[in-house]
C-alpha cells in the first residue's frame, strides 16, 4: 500500500494527541523518582520519595485496600442476589428499579456524601469509622455490580436452566450456586473489577466522608499535593498507578475473554443444519 501524505498527516496528529495525554503522566512518574525535580533527571534517580510516601501514608494504602475489598464483599453478597431477584421479577417495578439503580452514578458524589452526613453524621461512632466511607462506596459501586450481573442474566435463559436443575432435584440454594452463579461468572467478574477500580480511585465521596484518621489514597494524594514537596506527591501518584493498572488490565482482559467466549456460541447452529450426529 502506498502511503499518501494524508496518512503521515493523520499519523502525526495521532502521535501528537497521544503525547499530549501521556507526557504529563510520564513527567509525574519521573518526578516521583527524581532526586530534585527542579534540577531535572540529571540530579539522579532515587526511590527515596517512594519510601517516604510509604512511611507517611502507608495507613492510607491499607485503608484503601481494606475499603475496596470490603466494598467488593458487600457487593458480591448483596449485588448478585439483588441482580437475580431483579432479573427474575417480571413486574414493571423491577424494570423501574433497574433504571433507578443508575441514579447514584448520575448524582455527584458530593451530593451523596452530603446526604449521608445529614442522615447519619450525628452518629459519632459511625461518622468516625471507616465503615462510614464503606457505606458511601457501596452506594456508589453497587449499581455497577447489579447491572453487570443483570445484563448477563438477561442474555441467558436462566429460568429454563433453573427449571432444568430443579427437575433433577436441586433445591433453591443448590440451583443458585451450581447453575446461576457459574453462568453469571463473566458479569460477576466484570462487576467485581469495576467495584475495585472505582473504590480504589474514588475521591469526591471519600473526601467528604473521611476524617483525619480515615484517609484513603486519593484523599491522601490531594493532601500530599497541597502540603508536601512535588517529588513526594509524584511518588504517591506512582504508587496509585501501580495499584490501579492491574485492575484496568484485568478489566480489559475479562472483556476480551467474554467476547471470545460469545463467538463459538453464535456458530453452533451450523452443525445442526448439516445434521451432524453419530
Amino acid at each position: 500500500m502506498k502511503r499518501t501524505p494524508s496518512y503521515y498527516l493523520q499519523l502525526g496528529f495521532t502521535l501528537l494527541i497521544c503525547a499530549f495525554m501521556l507526557v504529563p503522566v510520564l513527567m509525574s512518574v519521573t518526578a516521583g523518582v527524581t532526586e530534585n525535580y527542579f534540577k531535572g533527571i540529571s540530579s539522579g534517580l532515587t526511590l527515596r520519595w517512594v519510601q517516604e510516601v510509604l512511611s507517611i501514608y502507608s495507613d492510607t494504602l491499607w485503608l484503601t485496600l481494606k475499603l475496596a475489598l470490603a466494598t467488593l464483599a458487600v457487593n458480591l453478597l448483596v449485588g448478585v442476589p439483588a441482580a437475580y431477584v431483579l432479573a427474575r421479577s417480571k413486574s414493571r417495578w423491577a424494570r423501574l428499579f433497574e433504571e433507578i439503580l443508575v441514579l447514584p452514578v448520575a448524582i455527584p458524589g458530593l451530593a451523596i456524601a452530603l446526604a449521608l452526613i445529614i442522615a447519619y453524621g450525628g452518629v459519632q461512632d459511625l461518622r468516625t469509622s471507616w465503615l462510614f466511607i464503606l457505606i458511601g462506596h457501596v452506594i456508589y459501586t453497587l449499581p455497577f455490580m447489579v447491572r453487570a450481573v443483570v445484563a448477563v442474566l438477561h442474555s441467558i435463559d436462566f429460568r429454563q436452566l433453573e427449571e432444568g436443575a430443579s427437575s433433577l432435584g436441586a433445591g433453591f440454594l443448590r440451583r443458585f450456586f451450581d447453575v446461576i452463579v457459574p453462568n453469571c461468572r463473566g458479569g460477576i467478574v466484570s462487576g467485581a473489577l469495576m467495584t475495585l477500580t472505582l473504590s480504589v480511585g474514588e475521591f469526591n465521596l471519600t473526601w467528604m466522608l473521611h476524617t483525619p484518621l480515615t484517609k484513603t489514597l486519593p484523599v491522601g494524594l490531594a493532601d500530599a499535593y497541597a502540603s508536601m514537596r512535588l517529588e513526594i506527591s509524584s511518588a504517591y501518584t506512582l504508587i496509585f498507578l501501580v495499584m490501579l493498572l492491574p485492575l484496568l488490565l484485568a478489566t480489559q482482559w475479562n472483556g476480551h475473554r467474554r467476547k471470545a467466549q460469545a463467538r463459538p456460541a453464535v456458530q453452533t447452529p451450523a452443525p445442526v443444519a448439516k445434521g451432524v450426529t453419530s
Binding site: E163, G164, S167, P182
Partner: peptide, 20 residues
C-alpha cells in the same frame, strides 16, 4: 410438591443444559 420433590425427568424444548 414443587418439581424438585416429584422425582420427574424433564426434557425441555431448548434442552436447558448447563453451559458451565
Amino acid at each position: 410438591l414443587p418439581i424438585e420433590k416429584r422425582q420427574v425427568g424433564m426434557v425441555f424444548q431448548s434442552y436447558a443444559l448447563f453451559p458451565n
